[in-house]
């Protein structure tokens, strides 16, 4: 495990990495010529993509951290409560009905709305029984998610070929956000959600011991658990709305960081935001430059690069995943 000083040392390369990512693009390496309109647009495009990547990476990593702790499940990830299926269905509906041809905000708006509704549904259903027990939550989320996924498949089987292409591409995840108002509102929402999670860091530490133990330690579980679930899942929903489904980051970054920085959420959550964001930006840089002008889904890179590293961490020493 790293000491605080070592963690701070690890932070130093982050700005440089982000700078390199800004210089790389499918049109070549280097700062675009800002004297021309095209150059300015290129820079704007890369900046917007960098910011989107960072925000989405941070949102997914922190969301994964919090959900793994509150659900006490090593397999928990940002999409475990069904937001990905809900968001996909919303986005697919917007694409299939042709609303996405009207305004660029229709697609993220529809995805976020559907994801938030799914979260509400899952929380209402799971809260009816024994007060948000982890297993009930996970099962409710998984079952709701599968039902929404089958609705999505039904939609896909009837959709026009053109819409099928767009929906499939959206499902694979893409970080090219369409407009600044969208990016800024997502950034705001994610910042708020992560702020809430960081404020609840001590609660998360207590929840790792089990909900009952946390209650006995003075945690108001009936209030804190839904709050954390909502904040974590809304951050994920915002990420889904702007970038589609990007897998792996929310599962692997939290585990890797827990191995490196420890399971104390007061350091883990900020680390997850910074490293998760940077990780996704770097992966996205590869996704858009490796086979230029073809773009490949960023999820391919996150899984192929993060997977082996995580497996190495996992097999290095025999620690429990959530410890």
């Amino acid at each position: 495990m790293l000491t605080t000083r070592q963690i701070l040392l690890w932070l130093i390369p982050i700005p440089f990495l982000l700078g390199i990512c800004l210089l790389a693009g499918s049109s070549g390496f280097g700062l675009p010529d800002t004297a021309t309109a095209t150059g300015r647009a290129l820079l704007e495009l890369r900046l917007s993509r960098l910011l989107t990547g960072f925000v989405v990476g941070a949102a997914l990593s922190c969301s994964g951290c919090a959900l793994q702790a509150v659900l006490r499940n090593a397999l928990a990830e940002p999409y475990v409560l069904g937001v990905s299926s809900g968001g996909s269905l919303g986005a697919a509906l917007v694409i299939a009905t042709g609303l996405s041809a009207l305004t660029p905000l229709a697609l993220p708006g529809g995805a976020f709305l559907a994801a938030a509704l799914t979260l509400l549904l899952v929380c209402l259903l799971a809260g009816r029984s024994n007060g948000y027990s982890p297993n009930t939550l996970i099962l409710t989320g998984v079952v709701t998610g599968s039902m929404l996924s089958s609705l999505l498949m039904l939609l896909l089987s009837f959709a026009q070929t053109r819409a099928v292409h767009s929906i499939t591409w959206w499902l694979l995840g893409n970080l090219q956000a369409t407009s600044w108002p969208l990016i800024l509102s997502v950034t705001l929402l994610v910042t708020l959600a992560l702020g809430v999670l960081c404020c609840e860091a001590r609660t998360l530490n207590a929840l790792l011991l089990g909900h009952e133990a946390a209650y006995n330690l003075g945690v108001r579980t009936r209030f804190s658990v839904p709050l954390i679930l909502t904040a974590a899942t809304l951050a994920a929903a915002a990420a889904v709305a702007v970038s589609g489904i990007i897998g792996f980051v929310g599962l692997i970054v939290p585990h890797a960081l827990r191995r490196l920085a420890g399971a104390n959420h007061r350091t883990l959550l900020p680390c997850a935001a910074l490293f998760g964001g940077t990780f996704l930006v770097v992966c996205d840089t590869f996704a858009r430059t490796l086979f230029a002008p073809h773009e490949i889904p960023v999820g391919v890179i996150t899984a192929l690069s993060g997977g082996p590293f995580f497996l190495y961490l996992l097999t290095r020493k025999g620690r429990q995943p959530l410890a």
């Binding site: 499918s26 095209t38 290129l42 495009l45 090219q176 002008p293 773009e295």
Partner: peptide, 30 residues
């Protein structure tokens, strides 16, 4: 195939031909 907006900017085409259903909406506004 899918392309990046960056590639489109670099190509800077003279004109854009939309081969999709626009339902009467001007793609320019989009």
């Amino acid at each position: 195939y899918h392309v990046s907006v960056e590639w489109i900017l670099e190509q800077n085409p003279d004109l854009i031909l939309c081969v999709f259903e626009t339902s009467g909406h001007d793609p320019l506004t989009l």
